[in-house]
Design a protein around this nucleic acid. Structure first.
Lengths: 137, 137
DNA sequence: TCGTCCATGCAACCCGATTGCATTGTTTAA
DNA sequence: TTAAACAATGCAATCGGGTTGCATGGACGA
């Protein structure tokens, strides 16, 4: 179990410390994207800054991606395996439920093709849908 | 000139005060979306809070829309005329240039149709493209 | 003219994000 | 095996955007 987690970390070139293993385990359990406060609340005694830096590291190394769903706080969710450090291939749709205020990744729903005006180079595409999720209907 | 501005404000049910006329004039001059600090810097002696509330009012009344381009600060841009208080019909694409860090409205590029999983109700769609704009290429 | 309402301006606060720095723990090289 | 080097952690403090409270001022209607 722990070994599987450690392997994941090492495959992304992240030193598997106790904290990082805990945070990754926590992230794997989530069905929705979480913010810093969520992770913090997930542990009894945890230092906010350490978690913050852990998430930063995870993001840099391509293990998780951050989502800006329009709320105040940045949220995080696990990446597809194909993601590498600095290169995120998870151009999927994110859905923010205005009722439960949860943000879900919808990886099956790819971001559509966009054609930009001449001279514009596309690097990244961010698509956030807002509405009511199936749980809240 | 001023009269045209006043007419716009009144058509959106906004009392045309000196400050609001100035802010609207400023917004009309912009080619990219601006944040609070930008507007503040556009005037010699201006109160940050007043501008903040002016923008809030404009947004509520459907004169401008706010854009969350993934940077720290919220940006604003003028709406299409069709926008009404509380109802924004400007589901267009926004482009954020990672070089000049400007955010542009691309109203000609409509947001594509999205089909959500069963049980999901769509209320709003937010599409932000990131890359390099034609000026920075 | 008076009273009311809205806009303005100042101060202060809140909160998420971030950095500095000292400490601890782990790995590497002698 | 030990010492040096480096990475991770934890605490304190800061920063900046966003926001609210409250008092003042100006416009407008009764």
């Amino acid at each position: 179990m722990n070994e599987a987690i450690e392997n994941i970390l090492q495959s992304k070139d992240i030193a598997p410390t106790a904290m990082r293993i805990l945070v990754l385990e926590y992230l794997q359990k989530q069905t929705a994207a979480v913010n810093l406060a969520d992770v913090e609340a997930g542990f009894a005694q945890a230092d906010r800054i350490t978690i913050y830096r852990t998430l930063k590291t995870f993001e840099e190394k391509g293990l998780i991606h951050s989502i800006n769903d329009g709320t105040e706080s940045t949220k995080y969710a696990l990446c597809a395996e194909a993601c590498k450090a600095g290169d995120h291939y998870d151009l999927h749709l994110h859905f923010f439920c205005i009722k439960c205020r949860q943000t879900y990744c919808l990886p099956k729903h790819k971001v559509p093709e966009i054609d930009l005006p001449a001279g514009y180079q596309l690097k990244e595409l961010n698509l956030v849908a807002k509405g009511i999720c199936d749980q809240c209907t």
